[in-house]
Write a protein that binds this DNA or RNA. Structure first.
Length: 341
DNA sequence: GTCCGGTGCT
DNA sequence: AGCACCGGAC
């Protein structure tokens, strides 16, 4: 009964699987390094966004030992734009651990994998299944949505983790665990999508309670999210002789290790006051992070009163910005320069 | 604008 | 258990 579902999933996969740079054919042996790297990148990030990053990383660092020998600054630079930069720091830390303590070989069991930096319950199961065919239960957002729909769970995913895990476990096959996990990812991203599931093309629609209900998109229920606050900041674009003032974020603040425009802290209430002569020209740029909006007043000036700087700025050639790790926020702020000339 | 999503820290 | 963390799809 349950094995029938995994059989349908695997048959669908054999006919419809996506070709992706980290996937291997059945005649090939999986490279755990590539499986691990892809899974780290795919957390919180869509396949199409990940592909060029994966290509760049594997070209520059073909093995985990190569990545372990890299500088963290280079890793952050290569990661720029992918977001959640703690992933890049943990990636580097994990590569060093594998290289130095595991002789360059990833462990096979989910339990050992879960002890490594950046590898949690999802990734440990996914790597064990995909790289080593261990029949671990792999539950990410896609799987949780598929399982909720097949079983007709209306409880929001966040409040139903145990039931979802048990249901997912009951479907997981003992053989071809890696193909099965990847098949569910493909079905989740291409068919069983959050808003408009394409049930007619789904191999499980005749097994699916949500489909039978006629309103599959309403499974699982959604959690009402509280609205997030807005913060405010001032940042300076100060260019002289082709050099722009930048500083490197330090400490434990978000985006630390990346370069940014000098400016104020991010205040909870309103835009920091500036003297009139520093107000023009400027542009207000809005950016949204996971837990707050940020409105930044970008002021362009050839000189900045040192009172507004912290003394840690570095003059960087504006034609060599592509050699530094910049967040998407900083790139967005830098575009003001093109707008205002 | 609104929604989506793994891990680590506390 | 609750919160911090980013960018892209719709």
């Amino acid at each position: 009964m349950n094995s029938k579902i995994s059989d349908k999933v695997l048959q669908w996969y054999d006919a419809n699987r996506r070709t992706l740079p980290w996937r291997y054919e059945q005649v090939q042996i999986a490279d755990p390094y590539r499986v691990w790297l892809s899974e780290m990148m795919l957390q919180q990030t869509q396949v199409d966004t990940v592909i060029p990053y994966f290509q760049k990383f594997t070209a520059k660092w073909p093995t985990v030992n190569d990545l372990a020998s890299a500088d963290l600054d280079d890793v952050l630079h290569m990661w720029q734009g992918l977001g959640y930069y703690a992933r890049a720091r943990n990636l580097h830390k994990c590569a060093k651990t594998i290289s130095e303590q595991f002789d360059g070989a990833f462990p096979r069991s989910p339990e050992e994998l879960a002890n490594l930096p950046g590898i949690g319950p999802y990734a440990s199961a996914a790597i064990a299944a995909i790289a080593f065919n261990v029949p671990a239960t792999v539950v990410d957002g896609n799987v949780a949505r598929i399982v909720s729909r097949v079983f007709g769970f209306s409880t929001p995913i966040q409040q139903n983790q145990k039931q979802i895990y048990s249901a997912a476990e009951s479907l997981t096959p003992l053989l071809r665990a890696g193909d099965y996990a990847q098949a569910l990812m493909d079905i989740g991203s291409g068919i069983c999508t959050p808003r408009s599931p394409k049930c007619q093309t789904c191999p499980l629609h005749t097994d699916c309670k949500a489909y039978a209900s006629g309103i599959p998109e309403q499974f699982p229920g959604k959690l009402i999210k509280p609205s997030i606050p807005t913060r405010y900041a001032v940042a300076f674009i100060c260019i002289k002789d082709n050099n722009i003032l930048l500083r490197k974020r330090t400490g434990e603040k978000m985006l630390h290790g990346l370069w940014e425009l000098p400016g104020s802290d991010w205040y909870a209430d309103s835009l920091p006051e500036l003297p009139d002569e520093m107000q023009a020209p400027y542009a207000d740029v809005k950016h949204t992070f996971s837990h707050f909006h940020l409105i930044t007043r970008v002021v362009q000036a050839s000189e900045i009163d040192p009172e507004y700087l912290n003394g840690a700025e570095v003059a960087c050639n504006i034609n060599e910005l592509d050699q530094l790790a910049l967040s998407t926020l900083t790139k967005k702020l830098l575009k003001v320069r093109n707008r205002n000339g």
